[in-house]
């Protein structure tokens, strides 16, 4: 989806909290992501100037860690656990079912900004495998069959959109 213009004036209060030492880089990036939902490119440049680093150093850190995203998340963000227990219990099939259901590939955000799909390593609920997390709520013991039903409440808002894509 398209990058929108973000109001970067909110950055200054984040900068103030952390001070301009290099050790503040990751906390600052986490804070920015909390504020915007992702790391806007322009914000990264401002961080580099503030911390007196080369932009490439900030970019290097922002692309290294799994938590950081360079594109906005969907309104409904879905995380599919791909830990070992979930894998053995068929997590991959659940992921594929979600990709089909939402017409998205893992890592993408839908064009209308409604849904985004992400795979995560392990959320530490192995006895409930396979699990997915929709909007921070954990859905235990999933299967491809349960995917459609679990998405129902979230789909309604963007029903028209999905229908349209289905017809395409």
């Amino acid at each position: 989806m398209k990058q929108q213009e973000e109001d970067l004036s909110r950055l200054s209060s984040i900068f103030e909290t952390y001070g301009n030492e290099r050790k503040g880089l990751i906390p600052i990036l986490l804070e920015i992501q909390k504020e915007f939902g992702y790391l806007p490119k322009e914000a990264l440049k401002k961080v580099a100037t503030f911390l007196n680093l080369k932009p490439i150093e900030v970019w290097g850190v922002a692309t290294f860690y799994n938590q950081f995203r360079l594109t906005p998340l969907g309104k409904t963000h879905i995380k599919v656990c791909m830990g070992t227990a979930c894998h053995l219990a068929g997590g991959r099939l659940v992921l594929e079912a979600l990709e089909r259901e939402l017409h998205l590939k893992v890592g993408e955000t839908s064009e209308d900004g409604q849904f985004s799909l992400e795979r995560v390593a392990c959320i530490g609920c192995c006895m409930l495998a396979p699990v997915i997390v929709i909007k921070d709520e954990i859905y235990p013991k999933m299967s491809p069959f349960k995917v459609e039903e679990s998405m129902l409440p979230y789909r309604q808002e963007s029903e028209s959109f999905i229908e349209k894509r289905r017809k395409d």
Partner: peptide, 11 residues
């Protein structure tokens, strides 16, 4: 930083 996908004792 418990990263092993399948371990959760530290948590």
């Amino acid at each position: 930083d418990e990263g092993d996908p399948g371990a959760f004792m530290d948590r």
